[in-house]
Amino acid sequence: MIREFIYKYYIDPIRYGQPYTLVDTLTYALILLACIWLLYRWFEKNKIIIDRNFVYALIPWVVLGGCLRVVEDTGLITSDLHVFFTTPLIFFLIFAIAFPTLYIANILEKRGTIPSWKKIFGGTGLFLTLITLSFLVWFGITKAHFDILVASRILGIAFGTTAILYAVIKYGFGWKYVQDRLYQMLIFGHMLDASATSYGIDLHSIRYSEQHVVGSALINLTGTAFVMFPLKLIVLIPGIYILELYRREGASGIWYLILLAMIMVGLAPGIRDMVRMVLYV
């Protein structure tokens, strides 16, 4: 019975690309929280300062995760190795590359070999992202489609909705702290995710589908994927408020990690969905 449960809710959805269920969604959320806490404790033990420069250095790795996910969407990986490029295993793949890079760069800084491990770490993530994007552009031009207008439309919706939400929060609610660049990145990441999902399901010539359980249920209920925007508002606005309360209590390190995780779960799928729509895969 346990074996059947594991295959039904964890192994088969990864193997066959099935939509998420409530069971695996909650499981992965708990795993993410546990990983954040364990990483926080490890960083504290090794005296690694978690600040905004740390978050900035990790953003290229978040983008890399979204781009590598598209590599699997192209279908070029025909062996069983393709499962490592699917969610949630791709998070462990990125971690397996990023963590040793971080560790080595931090040691080199302590030895005085390099001036800043964060710059080396972030630069490595950016370099790998550019390589992956170059491959995807090559694939789109030579083997599939490459419609840059799709990206411009999705980005246009994302920037527009980000500006509106930012204005509402800052001037309507009076939350001046939303001027923080990290909060702005958080808003944009989730607006990009909502924009890509809405465009892909309602407007793209290929009708994509929503795999997450809550989003899928609301889309089926309302008949439009643009319901993702109010869904994001329900999560983002209270989330920003609670995050700011948490920061004022002085827990800056864990605050940065939680904020990074929230940026990641919006930005990474948003990047992935937008790029795959540009390539029509």
Rank of each mutant, 00 (worst) to 15 (best):
D180E: 11
A196M: 07
F127V: 04
T113Q: 07
T87W: 06
K47W: 00
A268N: 11
T224V: 12
P19A: 01
I120H: 07
T113W: 09
T161P: 09
L203S: 10
I90F: 10
L233I: 15
I219G: 01
Y166I: 02
D73R: 10
W255E: 12
T21G: 15
I148S: 06
Y20M: 13
W117A: 05
Y56E: 06
S152G: 01
I120F: 13
K119Y: 10
L257S: 08
E210K: 12
Y56I: 07
D24G: 02
K170T: 04
C35T: 11
S198W: 08
T161Y: 11
M264F: 14
I234Y: 05
H190N: 15
L243H: 13
L68P: 07
A34F: 11
L221Q: 06
E244I: 12
R247K: 15
P115F: 03
P238G: 06
A217E: 12
A158N: 01
A196D: 04
K232Q: 14
I50P: 00
L26G: 02
I36K: 09
Y7M: 03
G172P: 04
F135A: 03
Y103C: 00
S195Y: 02
I131Y: 02
M1W: 01
I48A: 11
A34V: 13
W42H: 14
I114H: 03
Y40D: 15
K45G: 12
G250I: 09
D147Y: 08
L58M: 14
F146H: 07
I237R: 00
T27N: 00
G215W: 00
L221Y: 08
Y177F: 15
Y9H: 14
L38S: 12
F226K: 09
L108V: 02
K110D: 04
E4Q: 07
Y28S: 00
G66E: 03
G122S: 09
H145D: 15
I6F: 14
L218D: 04
Y7F: 13
I148G: 05
A57K: 08
I90V: 14
I94C: 14
A163D: 04
D202N: 11
G215S: 08
V168Q: 00
P19Y: 10
I36Q: 09
A225F: 12
G223S: 07
T132S: 12
F95Y: 13
T162I: 04
L38I: 14
L231T: 13
G250W: 04
G200C: 05
